[in-house]
Design a protein around this nucleic acid. Structure first.
Lengths: 254, 254
DNA sequence: TAGTGGTCTAGACCACATA
DNA sequence: ATGTGGTCTAGACCACTAG
């Protein structure tokens, strides 16, 4: 009886590919596929390196390199002695990974969220384009105010693909504690793993000024975000207006 | 005759340290020290992994892991078949690593730089604090305008420690082509490797508005940056005002 | 052809968490 | 005591560059 056909065997037999893809990257893609398909859900333990090595018929070192890359991209979290877990927006570590507002002085505090609006509407052209939908497709539209210590700081508008967020209602949002992305991942199976932002300075219009408690035409920081899930699928458009008198947006360049 | 005493031997003999530091991290620190001390200058080739392994008396795999981390931090650049090089702000890849302004539409173009001011002065209290100097210590103060396709987009104020930037004059700046950080690294031996930024929206005062060609009180994006060299030494404070009508500051969250 | 980094393996041992 | 990830080693072979 011949030995099992391993990925390494197959790779050796296969014709030289146009672009060389190392084994560990193929393993990484398989792991990504399992994550995308929900074989292991956020917060759950994935199989040990040894088990994965047996499953894919490669050495533990090769699995290790694949997992290393996924951990570096914040998709997995390694815990020595315990195992490797699927990253989640619920754990405190990742809680505010996407929230870059911090006070000019003093310690960052968790924000209070107040939802002003939650309705379904037909996607405007620009939103549809960014979400890879057709103009007029159903989207969920949210509006909310983030406050720190009682002071309103961020006014967010959020658009989500209607097909992915069917049961999302104002009630669900009002009763929910914790980060929005945590809700998305546990209730709608959509995990945000990456986002692109464009920052600008704009003046406050009357309605916005009133909501944020600033004067009309006050300078505000406009943050336009597109968030992506597995496989670079765009799943959220967000447009935030930040009052930056006593708070700022922090960024690290490296 | 006894064999040479290797780091591994020493580690085995040494009393258990309070915090465990793996060999590859010790090697990394040694490499960092060599980089800091200028043993290998930006753009230069460092010794091969095999040579480094012999020099430090560890396996090639251990050196590899140390170099991997330094490459991930953009301090070294690996090139298959050629060797490992010290990263430099001159190579096109890293050229605009710290410049986050891009046009809303169309391809990013290289900026034109015009220096408005270059003088030495005594550090104000806040600048001194950020540069880890004493109030009144000498600093170099620059002011410059960045334009894209003829349109002024960014007005920068820059403060540098006087002790590190002795020969920096308006003439040097005017005749220099290329990124400022390239000049700093080749002419003054100071390489920027990391920066922290704080972003805000502010209104344009009269002088600024005139220089940037916008109306007074127009909203501008204020970017306050502190740049660090090896060993987390702060070596630059920068305060930039960005016109974001047709350009924006891009950022990736992951 | 020689030298470099890149991949893959197998095995030993360490650090950490849990039972 | 056991199982997990973390470190370190040694060696084979591959991909890429350059003389």
């Amino acid at each position: 009886m011949p030995a099992a056909d391993t990925p390494a065997d197959a790779a050796a037999r296969a014709p030289r590919p146009a672009v060389f893809s190392p084994l560990y990257r193929q393993i990484k893609d398989l792991l990504l596929k399992s994550l995308d398909q929900g074989e292991w859900k956020p917060g759950e333990l994935i199989p040990s390196e040894i088990e994965l090595a047996m499953r894919f018929q490669v050495s533990q070192g090769t699995v290790r390199k694949a997992v290393d890359e996924l951990a570096a991209e914040n998709l997995l979290v390694r815990r020595q002695g315990k195992g490797t877990f699927v990253a989640t927006h619920h754990e405190p570590r990742a809680q505010f990974r996407f929230l870059r507002v911090v006070p000019d002085a003093g310690e960052p505090a968790p924000p209070q969220s107040r939802f002003l609006e939650c309705r379904r509407l037909r996607a405007p052209a620009d939103i549809a384009r960014q979400l890879d939908l057709r103009t007029g497709d159903a989207v969920v539209y949210l509006r909310r105010l983030l406050s720190f210590g009682g002071d309103p700081i961020v006014l967010d508008e959020i658009w989500l693909p209607g097909a992915l967020f069917k049961g999302l209602t104002a009630e669900r949002l009002a009763e929910y504690k914790g980060p929005l992305y945590g809700l998305f991942e546990t209730e709608f199976g959509t995990r945000m793993i990456r986002a692109e932002e464009q920052l600008r300075a704009v003046g406050a219009d009357r309605q916005v000024a009133q909501l944020l408690g600033v004067e009309e035409d006050s300078p505000l920081l406009l943050v336009e975000r597109v968030s992506y899930s597995y496989g670079d699928r765009a799943v959220e458009v967000r447009r935030g207006l930040y009052v930056t008198a006593h708070y700022h947006y922090r960024n690290t360049l490296s």
